[in-house]
Design a protein around this nucleic acid. Structure first.
Length: 332
DNA sequence: CATCAGGGCCCTG
DNA sequence: CAGGGCCCTGAT
């Protein structure tokens, strides 16, 4: 047997096929924008999800099970959910998954005040109208999102995607459902059981120690994510900062993407400050402080959601046609 | 070939 | 609280 066919067999045998176990319908608050909620063009593509033909497919680990989820728009702004799994699921479990996804995709948020606020703002108004009903959304559990913020650190997008790919291939699972093959995340215990040297072998560098410490933290604090979902953003921020490897930039991402705090904009990274400076003042050099101050004054408790609308909007534009000034600011 | 910053964070002084 | 070091890569 030659090497090629050998590796093909290995790869094929490593695929777990998920079967369709149930379906249900989600009912977001109105207004709701399916496409802009399901897909974020500013994010780098990850092998756990794919968005195509107005449909989102993604993997999810849930109560020791590996799930594949297909999400698509239904009538009257409803969202159709098909759940695939490696074991049968009770209808009560399907509803629990539905409830979890309602949270992860921000479908419970009441945007009516934001719509009113945006209408009064000449910059935000047209952008909000274009994406009316877009939510902060993140298909990942907190531990998974933390792994992403760690591979994001001090690396170009290319290197971050490579690191995540290797981690998922090594410790996660390859699954197939509904005609799609995707990777699924690993559990915290899987990483906690790996040695730092082993992780360094995946070329994550000094992040190996952080990944291990984060994983150990989640093994010991199973209810951490749920605890943080209630309570003010400041409390979540303070507790998250105590985890080794979680700094200002990561917390900022986590509060908005993970916990849907629409006001969590007290920090902005340099590259994003340049993009927002350009959008707000047509000047990419105004600096992070001024960007944060302006957003706070202008959009108050909705400032992070407003920033998110502006940010995704320019990345949607970029997809239609390259935006020259933006290309320089994105390090691929 | 060398050097360096990159979609941060920790630790030190 | 400012600044050096950290893994590894691709750009220069």
């Amino acid at each position: 047997m030659d090497d090629a066919s050998d590796s093909t067999i290995r790869e094929r045998s490593a695929i777990t096929v998920l079967r369709r176990r149930g379906q249900t319908t989600l009912h977001p608050t109105l207004p709701f924008h399916f496409v802009a909620t399901a897909h974020k063009p500013s994010h780098f593509p990850t092998p756990t999800e794919v968005f195509a033909e107005n449909t989102l497919w993604f993997t999810m680990t849930w109560c020791e099970a590996i799930l594949g989820v297909r999400m698509e728009p239904g009538p009257d702004s409803a969202v159709l959910l098909s759940v695939y799994a490696d074991r049968p699921l009770h209808s009560a479990e399907i509803e629990q998954i539905a409830s979890e996804l309602t949270f992860r995709f921000g479908m419970y948020l009441d945007l009516s005040d934001f719509v009113r606020l945006a209408a009064l703002d000449p910059l935000l108004g047209p952008v909000e109208a274009r994406w009316r009903g877009m939510r902060p959304s993140c298909a990942y559990a907190l531990f998974e999102l933390l792994c992403i913020t760690i591979v994001l650190q001090n690396a170009t997008v290319r290197r971050s995607t490579d690191m995540l790919q290797r981690l998922l291939e090594t410790y996660g699972r390859r699954v197939r459902f509904d005609g799609r093959t995707l990777l699924a995340f690993f559990s915290p215990s899987r990483i906690a059981a790996a040695s730092e040297e082993e992780l360094r072998g995946l070329k994550v560098g000094y992040r190996a120690k952080m990944l291990r410490r984060v994983a150990e933290f989640f093994v010991e604090h199973e209810t951490f994510e749920n605890d943080l979902r209630s309570g003010p953003p400041e409390r979540a921020a303070n507790l998250l900062r105590q985890i080794y490897g979680v700094g200002l930039a990561s917390v900022w991402y986590l509060l908005f993407e993970g916990f849907k705090h629409v006001d969590a904009f007290d920090h902005v990274s340099p590259w994003e400050a340049k993009i927002l400076g350009k959008l707000l003042f047509n000047d990419e050099t105004v600096g992070a402080e001024r960007v944060v101050r302006t957003a706070t004054k202008r959009w108050g408790a909705w400032r992070m959601l407003a920033v998110h609308y502006l940010f995704e909007d320019i990345f949607w534009q970029r997809r239609a046609q390259r935006v020259p000034w933006l290309e320089k600011l994105i390090r691929l």
